[in-house]
Amino acid sequence: MRFVRRLHERFESLVHELAKFGSIGAIAFVLDTGLLNLFNLGMGWGPLTSKVLATTISTTFAYLGNRFWTFRHREQSGLGREYFLFFLLNGIALLFGMLTIGFTTYTLGLEDSLSFNIANIVGVGLGTLFRFWSYKKWVFLEATEPIPVELPDAGVKQDR
């Protein structure tokens, strides 16, 4: 029984982070895919241009959700630093999507919407694995001190 308790304690925060990360990621995915299809299929912009624009918008949403919800308990090392690293790492992850869409469209010659969306899903999946690992390692750092659940009373005495 101690083993199960230690295992639960060890992975509890990881499971919560993964659930929150997955929730933000799911919303960002819907946003990214919807905008990607709107830009490419609806507006007739190129597949790679559409991917870059859709990813830029969904990445901004994902940053805000991850900073202020998923990883809010982690060290805050400065909005500018985090935002820069977040977008840099998302730029690297974007390459997965661009490679799969580019390969499908230009190498295989598959330009139908189903192939386009499947390529996007594969690229997003590969990029998501990279993003989760890299955010924890470089963007949203472990807190050096425990972050209090509630704000301290600041020396205010309460009458009881």
Rank of each mutant, 00 (worst) to 15 (best):
W138S: 06
H8W: 10
E12T: 08
K137W: 01
S23A: 15
L108K: 00
G91Q: 02
L36I: 03
I118T: 05
S13N: 10
N90P: 03
R74K: 15
W69F: 07
L64H: 07
T144F: 10
R160E: 11
F86S: 08
W69C: 03
S115Y: 08
L129G: 15
G78Q: 04
I118H: 07
A26N: 05
R81T: 10
L7C: 07
E82Q: 15
P152G: 06
L64A: 13
V15L: 12
F3N: 14
V30K: 00
F130K: 06
F140G: 06
N90I: 01
A154N: 13
D32N: 07
V15K: 09
G123Y: 03
D159F: 09
K137Y: 06
W133P: 03
T104L: 03
K137G: 10
S58C: 00
T55S: 12
E150Y: 12
M1Q: 12
E17G: 03
V30W: 00
L38Q: 01
W45Y: 13
R160M: 10
V30F: 10
I57A: 12
D32Y: 00
N90Y: 09
L7T: 12
R160H: 09
V4Y: 10
T105D: 14
G91H: 05
E82L: 06
R6S: 14
P152Q: 03
V124Q: 04
L126T: 09
I121V: 15
H16T: 11
G34Y: 09
A154E: 13
L48A: 07
M43C: 12
E75K: 12
L126W: 07
I101A: 06
L14A: 12
E142R: 06
L141W: 05
Y106V: 09
G44P: 02
N117V: 08
A54E: 02
G44E: 09
W45P: 01
S23I: 13
Y83I: 14
R5I: 15
